[in-house]
Design a protein around this nucleic acid. Sequence first.
DNA 1: GTAGGGTTAG
Length: 607
Amino acid sequence: MQFQTIKTHVVRTVTESIAGAGAGNKRAAEQSCLSLLEACDSLTKFTQLHARILKLGLRNNPLVLTKFAAVSSELDAVDYASSFVFCPDADSRLYDAFLFNTLIRGYAQTSSSKEKAFLVYSAMLRYGVLPNKFTYPFVLKACAGLGSLSLGKTVHGSAVKFGFDDDVHVRNTMIHMYCCCGGGIGDARTMFDEMPKWDSVSWSAMIGGYVRLRLSADAVEVFRKMQIARVRPDEITMVSVLSACTDLGALELGKWVESYVEKEGIQRSVELCNALIDMFAKCGDVDKALKLFRKMSEKTIVSWTSVIGGLAMHGRGSEAVSLFEEMIGNGITPDNVAFIGLLSACSHSGLVDKGKGYFSSMTKEYDIVPKIEHYGCMVDMLCRAGLVKEAMEFVQKMPIEPNSIILRTLVSACRAHGELKLGESISRSLISNEPMHESNYVLLSNIYAKMSHWEKKTKIRETMDKKGMKKIPGSTMIELDNEIYEFVAGDKSHEQYKEIYEMVEEMGREIKRAGYVPSTSEVLLDIDEEDKEDALNRHSEKLAIAFALLNTPPGTHIRIVKNLRVCSDCHSATKFISKIYRREIVVRDRNRFHHFKDGLCSCKDFW
DNA sequence: GTAGGGTTAG
């Protein structure tokens, strides 16, 4: 029946019932009201009608309310429904598990009111309504979203009490919940290990959990166990495995995943293709990512954003910009993430004017309020271009407080462009705000090095020691014959270490002859110049490159992944190495890619 | 009548 027809029918029936007809008529009226409410397609329509129905003295029906909330899944609708469901004159005899589940699901799906899912869950228990097997996945999802381990444990206990912890859906959601709560990964693993049997969802939940915490090597290990257990992975499992490859920079493993998907006939969902694009781009083969992107028949904003961000990381800013324009031409409205990719493309390629234009179009044309990350991109862009003063002014005019990432960007730029006094003062305030953040000290120390204030520099080292601060160890990974090797500075754990150090020595001699000068002022330790050079030579990047030179045939490209930003000394040394040893060297650092070839780097020394 | 795991930035 059409909405209007029902409406006419209801008004007539209701009028008759009000005119004093019997109880049968009233029930018929109520029935019609339900149909009418169910036919509503907006919250406004729904609330207006509902108010009218209540005014006519008809019974409030919580079920209809919750059904509407479930269909619309808007927070307002869920709030509206629960306010009437729990109003004092509501007929609580109509409450059942389905009704509560619907409300809990409604709240669990919202981004801002997940805690209300618990209020409804507690109300459910208070009214003496028993939860059923559908209740826990909803409640646990809300726990996962809130990330509260203690809450999660309480709900876990409750599920055990009512005997639903044996249900495979409940257990899998429980693993997912523990993975999402800070400090819960151990509980997740214990539960996972103790499960009597696993399906692909259990494995995916565990793998995804490790990936979320960036414990990617663990994720890969669990995936290998999954294969030994002979559980067939599906496209969702493979998305997580690909994320792990992306994080590790493991191109070979990523390629293997692609062929595995092909061989096993796993469905290439849009999400899987997006994950493949991201993996290829971030593992160094952005052309392959582009090719895959072009072949996709259905693209989402994530596909576009992944490939735009990928090009940005490789310093191919103008291509990223044209893809952004193409995306708009295809009728896709950019979101705030797409703008981050675009702005970082402009930043990494020195497209300052373009970047400024896009930044203002965000608000003017697309009605997106810039977030701190967008401001961060702008500051980064100005700093890379050497416009330190303009960057300072920009920060002062920003409507939000700059975060420490932005301030650190400013300090680096101050150091690079000789604004040492300014850099020192920003750096000092950073240290007083975040006294345990190592990089704040490193920045200040580098500024003092540039000012030749050696005593002050030494003092910083002492302060750090006194505070017992741990340095985040820089590490470099390299993939060789399906194995991933990791190096830290001064690493001697590798069986080839003697040859590696000899190779590093040799590399040093060769590149010095070609004009390389070690930048010893980067070294934080208070040691003499010769030892500083030695310290630079032990950097993990250089060890990994030496390892690659030793173990790969001449001419092979070398791909390495560094967990932090590449240091300026290694950057300069790698340029020389690429020329002398005739190798293309692709370095992925924390922020972007550097393609070294013939003594030059694709970042054009913007970094 | 209601259920579980996934992709983009910084």
